[in-house]
Design a protein around this nucleic acid. Structure first.
Length: 192
DNA sequence: CTGTAGATCGTCT
DNA sequence: GACGATCTACAGA
C-alpha cells in the first residue's frame, strides 16, 4: 500500500523521519523494480536548521524543490560524486526534508548488486545515502518528481515500527552547522 | 581494526 | 575560487 500524498504533508518532519523507519522504499527505473526497508533517516528542519540547504531562508535553483508541498523527491549532487535522495515534507513554502541514509534490500537484490558491483548478502543492511541512491538508480533527473507516482514511492510494509528498536542521534557530516549539528535528528533502527 | 587521501563538479560567494 | 548532508581504496598497526 503506497503512502498517500497527505502522509507527506505532516507538519513535524522529525516525527516523520522516525515514522519512515521500517517502511519500504521502491524505485522502478528502466523497468527494473528495486526496493528495501528503510533503516536510517535524517530530518532537515526548515529555514531555522543550519544544517539544511534552506537555512536562513536560502532559496535557489538547486533547493527550490524543498519549498514544494510534501511528497516529492529532492535529489542533489554531493562532493561532486554522489547523488543524495531526500523526501520533501510539510506544506508548500516550508522547506522540510528527510534524507534516506540506509536500507535493507528486499526486492531486486540482484539488480542492486550489479549496480553496486558487489555482492549483497540476504538481509544485509546498506548504510550511506550515496550508496542508497546508487543502488536504487536515483539520479538528478528524478529531482522534483512525485513520490505517489510509479517511479519512486514508499509503501507502508509489514513492519510495525512500534516494535522496533529505534535510536535517535546526531546527524552525520554536518559539522559546519554549529550547535545544530548536535540535534538528535538522525534515526536508526534494527527491524525485529 | 583505524586513519586518511583522492575523486570530482555544481553551487554559491 | 572554495567547499561540500560522501565513498572507496589503501596503508599501517
Amino acid at each position: 500500500m503506497k503512502l498517500s500524498r497527505s502522509y507527506y504533508l505532516h507538519g513535524d518532519v522529525v516525527c516523520l523521519a522516525r515514522d519512515l523507519l521500517g517502511k519500504t522504499l521502491y524505485t522502478r527505473i528502466d523497468g527494473n523494480l528495486t526496493g528495501g526497508i528503510i533503516t536510517e533517516t535524517e530530518a532537515y528542519r526548515g529555514i531555522g536548521d543550519r544544517a539544511s540547504h534552506a537555512w536562513n531562508g536560502s532559496r535557489t535553483a538547486r533547493n527550490e524543490v524543498m519549498y514544494a508541498a510534501g511528497g516529492v523527491a529532492y535529489v542533489f549532487l554531493c562532493y561532486g560524486v554522489h547523488y543524495l535522495f531526500n523526501v520533501v515534507t510539510n506544506n508548500r513554502n516550508i522547506p522540510d526534508a528527510i534524507l534516506i541514509r540506509g536500507l535493507i534490500p528486499t526486492t531486486g537484490e540482484k539488480i542492486m548488486a550489479d549496480r553496486w558491483g558487489k555482492e549483497i548478502k540476504p538481509g544485509e543492511a546498506i548504510y550511506g545515502p550515496g550508496r542508497v541512491s546508487r543502488l536504487l538508480s536515483i539520479l538528478p533527473g528524478h529531482n522534483g518528481i512525485s513520490l505517489t507516482g510509479d517511479t519512486i514511492w514508499i509503501e507502508q510494509g509489514r513492519t510495525d515500527n512500534r516494535k522496533m528498536s529505534i535510536k535517535a542521534s546526531s546527524r552525520i557530516g554536518v559539522d559546519y552547522a554549529g550547535e545544530d549539528a548536535n540535534l538528535p535528528y538522525r534515526f536508526t533502527c534494527i527491524p525485529g
